[in-house]
Protein backbone atom coordinates (compact mmCIF):
# COMPACT_ATOMS: atom_id res chain seq x y z
CA UNK A 1 0.00 0.00 0.00
CA UNK A 2 1.26 3.42 -0.93
CA UNK A 3 0.61 6.05 1.67
CA UNK A 4 -1.31 9.06 0.46
CA UNK A 5 0.96 12.02 0.88
CA UNK A 6 -0.65 15.39 0.53
CA UNK A 7 1.68 18.04 -0.79
CA UNK A 8 -0.55 20.99 -1.47
CA UNK A 9 2.04 23.32 -2.96
CA UNK A 10 3.97 21.32 -5.49
CA UNK A 11 2.31 18.66 -7.63
CA UNK A 12 3.70 15.16 -7.16
CA UNK A 13 5.06 14.96 -10.67
CA UNK A 14 5.54 11.21 -10.60
CA UNK A 15 1.87 10.32 -10.11
CA UNK A 16 0.57 11.34 -13.52
CA UNK A 17 0.96 9.46 -16.78
CA UNK A 18 1.49 10.87 -20.24
CA UNK A 19 -1.21 10.33 -22.81
CA UNK A 20 -0.64 10.20 -26.55
CA UNK A 21 -3.54 10.25 -28.94
CA UNK A 22 -2.38 9.67 -32.51
CA UNK A 23 -4.56 10.10 -35.57
CA UNK A 24 -7.56 8.66 -33.82
CA UNK A 25 -10.75 8.39 -35.86
CA UNK A 26 -13.98 6.81 -34.70
CA UNK A 27 -17.44 6.19 -36.08
CA UNK A 28 -20.71 4.53 -35.10
CA UNK A 29 -23.01 2.42 -37.23
CA UNK A 30 -26.53 3.77 -37.06
CA UNK A 31 -29.13 1.72 -38.96
CA UNK A 32 -26.76 1.04 -41.82
CA UNK A 33 -25.35 4.55 -42.11
CA UNK A 34 -22.00 5.45 -40.63
CA UNK A 35 -21.84 8.35 -38.19
CA UNK A 36 -18.32 9.74 -38.02
CA UNK A 37 -17.59 11.22 -34.61
CA UNK A 38 -13.82 11.71 -34.46
CA UNK A 39 -11.65 12.73 -37.41
CA UNK A 40 -7.89 12.13 -37.03
CA UNK A 41 -7.51 13.63 -33.60
CA UNK A 42 -3.95 13.90 -32.32
CA UNK A 43 -3.11 15.17 -28.87
CA UNK A 44 -0.11 14.72 -26.60
CA UNK A 45 -0.73 15.25 -22.91
CA UNK A 46 2.23 15.64 -20.56
CA UNK A 47 2.22 13.90 -17.15
CA UNK A 48 0.35 15.98 -14.61
CA UNK A 49 -1.34 18.27 -17.13
CA UNK A 50 -4.97 19.28 -16.69
CA UNK A 51 -6.52 19.34 -20.14
CA UNK A 52 -10.05 20.58 -20.73
CA UNK A 53 -11.83 19.50 -23.91
CA UNK A 54 -14.39 22.07 -25.08
CA UNK A 55 -16.72 21.72 -27.99
CA UNK A 56 -20.27 21.87 -29.24
CA UNK A 57 -22.77 19.44 -27.79
CA UNK A 58 -22.60 15.99 -29.35
CA UNK A 59 -19.31 16.63 -31.14
CA UNK A 60 -17.65 13.45 -29.90
CA UNK A 61 -15.67 14.62 -26.88
CA UNK A 62 -17.27 12.02 -24.65
CA UNK A 63 -16.51 9.35 -27.24
CA UNK A 64 -12.87 10.36 -27.08
CA UNK A 65 -13.00 9.87 -23.29
CA UNK A 66 -14.45 6.38 -23.74
CA UNK A 67 -11.53 5.56 -26.03
CA UNK A 68 -9.03 6.93 -23.50
CA UNK A 69 -10.71 4.86 -20.77
CA UNK A 70 -10.34 1.81 -22.99
CA UNK A 71 -14.09 1.09 -22.94
CA UNK A 72 -14.03 0.91 -26.75
CA UNK A 73 -11.21 0.50 -29.28
CA UNK A 74 -10.86 3.29 -31.88
CA UNK A 75 -11.67 2.57 -35.56
CA UNK A 76 -8.31 4.02 -36.59
CA UNK A 77 -5.24 5.45 -34.88
CA UNK A 78 -3.70 4.66 -31.54
CA UNK A 79 -3.87 5.77 -27.91
CA UNK A 80 -0.96 5.31 -25.55
CA UNK A 81 -0.59 5.73 -21.81
CA UNK A 82 3.05 6.27 -20.81
CA UNK A 83 3.99 4.90 -24.23
CA UNK A 84 2.00 1.67 -23.74
CA UNK A 85 -0.94 1.11 -26.13
CA UNK A 86 -4.36 1.31 -24.45
CA UNK A 87 -6.17 -1.97 -25.14
CA UNK A 88 -8.85 -2.03 -22.46
CA UNK A 89 -10.05 -0.44 -19.24
CA UNK A 90 -7.56 -0.24 -16.40
CA UNK A 91 -7.86 1.24 -12.91
CA UNK A 92 -4.96 3.59 -13.69
CA UNK A 93 -7.43 5.44 -15.94
CA UNK A 94 -10.67 5.99 -14.06
CA UNK A 95 -13.71 7.85 -15.33
CA UNK A 96 -16.09 10.06 -13.40
CA UNK A 97 -19.26 10.34 -15.48
CA UNK A 98 -21.87 13.09 -15.63
CA UNK A 99 -24.24 10.82 -13.69
CA UNK A 100 -22.62 9.63 -10.48
CA UNK A 101 -23.71 6.06 -11.45
CA UNK A 102 -23.28 4.82 -7.89
CA UNK A 103 -24.35 1.23 -7.39
CA UNK A 104 -27.63 1.69 -5.49
CA UNK A 105 -27.30 -1.65 -3.67
CA UNK A 106 -23.93 -0.68 -2.17
CA UNK A 107 -23.37 1.75 0.66
CA UNK A 108 -21.13 4.76 0.09
CA UNK A 109 -18.26 2.83 1.66
CA UNK A 110 -18.82 -0.24 -0.50
CA UNK A 111 -19.14 1.89 -3.63
CA UNK A 112 -15.76 3.47 -2.96
CA UNK A 113 -14.30 0.07 -2.06
CA UNK A 114 -15.26 -1.55 -5.38
CA UNK A 115 -11.95 -0.74 -7.10
CA UNK A 116 -9.72 -2.25 -4.39
CA UNK A 117 -12.20 -5.13 -4.08
CA UNK A 118 -11.85 -5.89 -7.80
CA UNK A 119 -8.05 -5.79 -7.48
CA UNK A 120 -8.25 -8.18 -4.56
CA UNK A 121 -6.48 -5.71 -2.29
CA UNK A 122 -9.39 -4.51 -0.18
CA UNK A 123 -8.01 -6.06 3.02
CA UNK A 124 -4.84 -3.94 2.85
CA UNK A 125 -6.71 -0.88 1.57
CA UNK A 126 -9.54 -0.49 4.09
CA UNK A 127 -7.94 2.53 5.71
CA UNK A 128 -7.33 4.03 2.31
CA UNK A 129 -11.04 3.73 1.52
CA UNK A 130 -11.83 5.49 4.81
CA UNK A 131 -9.27 8.19 4.06
CA UNK A 132 -10.62 8.82 0.57
CA UNK A 133 -14.21 9.13 1.81
CA UNK A 134 -12.86 11.54 4.39
CA UNK A 135 -11.03 13.45 1.66
CA UNK A 136 -14.32 14.25 -0.11
CA UNK A 137 -15.89 15.13 3.24
CA UNK A 138 -18.41 12.30 3.51
CA UNK A 139 -17.11 10.19 6.40
CA UNK A 140 -20.44 10.66 8.19
CA UNK A 141 -22.25 9.15 5.23
CA UNK A 142 -20.04 6.07 4.79
CA UNK A 143 -22.92 3.75 5.67
CA UNK A 144 -25.60 5.61 3.70
CA UNK A 145 -27.14 4.25 0.53
CA UNK A 146 -26.96 6.33 -2.68
CA UNK A 147 -30.68 7.18 -2.65
CA UNK A 148 -30.11 9.02 0.63
CA UNK A 149 -27.53 11.40 -0.89
CA UNK A 150 -27.94 14.73 -2.66
CA UNK A 151 -26.64 15.15 -6.21
CA UNK A 152 -23.45 16.88 -5.07
CA UNK A 153 -22.75 14.27 -2.40
CA UNK A 154 -23.31 11.46 -4.87
CA UNK A 155 -20.84 13.04 -7.29
CA UNK A 156 -18.32 13.37 -4.45
CA UNK A 157 -18.68 9.66 -3.80
CA UNK A 158 -18.09 8.99 -7.50
CA UNK A 159 -14.95 11.11 -7.25
CA UNK A 160 -13.78 9.20 -4.18
CA UNK A 161 -14.52 5.90 -5.93
CA UNK A 162 -12.19 7.02 -8.72
CA UNK A 163 -9.47 8.51 -6.52
CA UNK A 164 -9.16 5.50 -4.21
CA UNK A 165 -7.50 3.66 -7.12
CA UNK A 166 -4.75 6.26 -7.24
CA UNK A 167 -5.33 6.85 -10.96
CA UNK A 168 -2.56 8.14 -13.19
CA UNK A 169 -5.11 9.68 -15.51
CA UNK A 170 -8.40 10.94 -14.10
CA UNK A 171 -11.04 11.17 -16.82
CA UNK A 172 -13.83 13.62 -16.03
CA UNK A 173 -16.85 13.45 -18.36
CA UNK A 174 -18.81 16.60 -17.49
CA UNK A 175 -18.76 15.55 -13.85
CA UNK A 176 -20.38 18.74 -12.61
CA UNK A 177 -22.87 19.12 -15.47
CA UNK A 178 -25.95 18.24 -13.46
CA UNK A 179 -25.14 20.00 -10.20
CA UNK A 180 -26.60 23.28 -9.01
CA UNK A 181 -24.35 26.27 -9.58
CA UNK A 182 -23.19 26.71 -5.96
CA UNK A 183 -22.23 23.05 -5.54
CA UNK A 184 -20.58 23.29 -8.91
CA UNK A 185 -18.31 26.18 -7.88
CA UNK A 186 -17.36 24.43 -4.64
CA UNK A 187 -16.53 21.21 -6.40
CA UNK A 188 -14.49 22.99 -9.06
CA UNK A 189 -12.20 24.25 -6.34
CA UNK A 190 -12.12 20.80 -4.73
CA UNK A 191 -11.12 19.16 -7.99
CA UNK A 192 -8.31 21.68 -8.47
CA UNK A 193 -6.91 21.08 -5.01
CA UNK A 194 -7.16 17.28 -5.37
CA UNK A 195 -5.36 17.45 -8.69
CA UNK A 196 -2.68 19.74 -7.30
CA UNK A 197 -2.09 17.56 -4.25
CA UNK A 198 -2.04 14.20 -6.05
CA UNK A 199 -0.47 15.20 -9.34
CA UNK A 200 -2.45 12.89 -11.63
CA UNK A 201 -3.07 13.81 -15.25
CA UNK A 202 -6.60 15.13 -15.78
CA UNK A 203 -8.75 15.07 -18.89
CA UNK A 204 -11.97 17.02 -18.48
CA UNK A 205 -14.86 17.27 -20.91
CA UNK A 206 -17.12 20.21 -20.23
CA UNK A 207 -19.60 22.55 -21.90
CA UNK A 208 -18.75 25.31 -19.52
CA UNK A 209 -16.05 27.64 -20.84
CA UNK A 210 -15.47 29.24 -17.45
CA UNK A 211 -15.09 25.86 -15.81
CA UNK A 212 -12.50 24.84 -18.39
CA UNK A 213 -10.52 28.05 -17.90
CA UNK A 214 -10.77 27.97 -14.12
CA UNK A 215 -9.55 24.38 -13.83
CA UNK A 216 -7.27 23.51 -16.71
CA UNK A 217 -3.66 24.19 -17.62
CA UNK A 218 -4.57 23.67 -21.24
CA UNK A 219 -7.76 23.97 -23.25
CA UNK A 220 -8.49 22.06 -26.45
CA UNK A 221 -11.41 23.24 -28.57
CA UNK A 222 -13.16 20.83 -30.91
CA UNK A 223 -15.16 21.50 -34.06
CA UNK A 224 -18.65 20.23 -34.86
CA UNK A 225 -18.98 16.49 -35.50
CA UNK A 226 -16.88 14.76 -36.71
CA UNK A 227 -14.68 16.35 -34.07
CA UNK A 228 -11.40 17.85 -35.13
CA UNK A 229 -9.08 19.93 -32.99
CA UNK A 230 -9.76 23.58 -33.76
CA UNK A 231 -7.58 25.25 -31.15
CA UNK A 232 -5.22 24.21 -28.39
CA UNK A 233 -3.89 26.80 -25.95
CA UNK A 234 -2.36 27.06 -22.49
CA UNK A 235 -4.05 28.83 -19.62
CA UNK A 236 -0.98 30.61 -18.26
CA UNK A 237 -2.37 31.51 -14.85
CA UNK A 238 -1.10 30.33 -11.47
CA UNK A 239 -3.31 28.45 -8.98
CA UNK A 240 -5.38 29.17 -6.98
CA UNK A 241 -7.13 31.14 -9.68
CA UNK A 242 -9.55 33.97 -9.25
CA UNK A 243 -12.84 33.87 -11.07
CA UNK A 244 -12.70 37.63 -11.54
CA UNK A 245 -9.25 37.62 -13.14
CA UNK A 246 -9.30 39.90 -16.25
CA UNK A 247 -7.02 37.44 -18.07
CA UNK A 248 -9.72 34.74 -17.61
CA UNK A 249 -12.33 37.06 -19.10
CA UNK A 250 -10.08 37.67 -22.07
CA UNK A 251 -9.48 33.93 -22.62
CA UNK A 252 -13.18 33.35 -22.26
CA UNK A 253 -13.99 35.80 -25.02
CA UNK A 254 -11.43 34.16 -27.31
CA UNK A 255 -12.73 30.67 -26.54
CA UNK A 256 -16.32 31.64 -27.18
CA UNK A 257 -15.26 33.17 -30.48
CA UNK A 258 -13.61 29.86 -31.41
CA UNK A 259 -16.83 28.06 -30.50
CA UNK A 260 -18.72 30.35 -32.88
CA UNK A 261 -20.38 32.46 -30.23
CA UNK A 262 -18.45 35.68 -30.78
CA UNK A 263 -21.55 37.66 -31.65
CA UNK A 264 -23.11 37.27 -28.19
CA UNK A 265 -20.02 38.68 -26.45
Amino acid sequence: MVAVELRPEQPAASAGASLDIENVSHAFDLDGSVLRVLDSVSLNVEPGEFVALLGPSGCGKSTLLRLIAGLEPPRAGQLRENGQPITGPHPSRVVVFQDPTLFPWRTVWNNVALGPEAQGSLKQQRERVDATIDLVGLSQFAKAYPHQLSGGMAQRVALARALVNDPEILILDEPLGKLDSLTRLTMQSEIVSLWRSKGFTSILVTHDVEEALFLATRVVIFSERPARIKADFRVDLPYPRHRGDPRLAELRRESLALLGLAASW
Binding site: L71, P89, P91, F97, T101, F103, L114, A118
Partner: peptide, 12 residues
Amino acid sequence: AYYDVARTLGVK
Protein backbone atom coordinates in the same frame (compact mmCIF):
# COMPACT_ATOMS: atom_id res chain seq x y z
CA ALA B 1 -23.28 2.70 -17.40
CA TYR B 2 -22.93 0.40 -14.37
CA TYR B 3 -20.86 -1.98 -16.47
CA ASP B 4 -18.73 0.91 -17.80
CA VAL B 5 -17.99 2.13 -14.29
CA ALA B 6 -17.25 -1.36 -13.00
CA ARG B 7 -14.96 -2.10 -15.95
CA THR B 8 -12.92 1.07 -15.52
CA LEU B 9 -12.52 0.12 -11.86
CA GLY B 10 -10.98 -3.16 -12.99
CA VAL B 11 -13.91 -5.53 -12.41
CA LYS B 12 -13.47 -8.73 -14.47
